[in-house]
């Protein structure tokens, strides 16, 4: 290829020129809104969050207790069998420290985001959430953390009813 082809197609335009309106473009903003039904398992999960509890599902075949809960076991491919309350604490499986907002702009304050293996669920079963009340440099793998809940009145039945997880003083 390299030897034979002299010129590759593609007319580059500078991002700055594009932003400055120097290149003709058509602009569009999709006006769509969504309302997702939270389904059987997650409706219960969210209701329990409102009560300050984390609920999981257990599969009697593989004996896994999984959270987020699901009405079927994706491994055994059969219905899961029972609701099980798990603890609102766990250990940090992995984490990162973000200086980046979703739109790729930079944030002033870092956010620590972690996968937390939940106590009472099967080994390796975790959820993703924010870590608070800790300096980023003090966060470690395997660190014990506990949920910090919003006051009952402020809870809406959302994953954000847990404000964040904070390190447990040992």
């Amino acid at each position: 290829m390299s030897a034979k082809i002299k010129k590759y197609a593609g007319e580059r335009i500078k991002t700055a020129d594009l932003r400055a309106g120097k290149v003709p473009v058509v602009r569009w903003r999709p006006k769509v809104r969504y309302a997702w039904s939270t389904g059987i398992a997650m409706s219960r999960f969210l209701k329990e969050l409102k009560n300050g509890k984390i609920i999981a599902r257990k599969c009697h075949k593989c004996n896994r207790i999984v959270v987020p809960p699901r009405m079927y076991c994706e491994m055994c491919f059969r219905p899961t069998d029972e609701w099980v309350y798990v603890k609102d604490s766990g250990i940090i499986n992995t984490y990162s420290i973000s200086y980046l907002a979703a739109d790729a702009t930079r944030t002033d304050k870092p956010t620590v985001v972690a996968v937390i293996e939940i106590d009472g669920a099967s080994k390796g079963i975790g959820i993703v959430h924010i870590i608070g009340e800790a300096k980023p440099k003090d966060v470690t793998f395997g660190m014990k953390v506990k949920a910090v809940w919003k006051p009952p009145k402020e809870r809406t039945g959302a994953i954000t009813d847990i404000k964040y997880f904070k390190p447990v003083e040992v």
């Binding site: 973000s98 980046l100 907002a101 979703a102 972690a114 959820i127 959430h129 924010i130 959302a158």
Partner: peptide
Amino acid sequence: PIMSRPIGMNLVWIFAI
């Protein structure tokens, strides 16, 4: 949309993790 988006999840987070 239920578990991840409300906490502000972005793409680089999951790869960093």
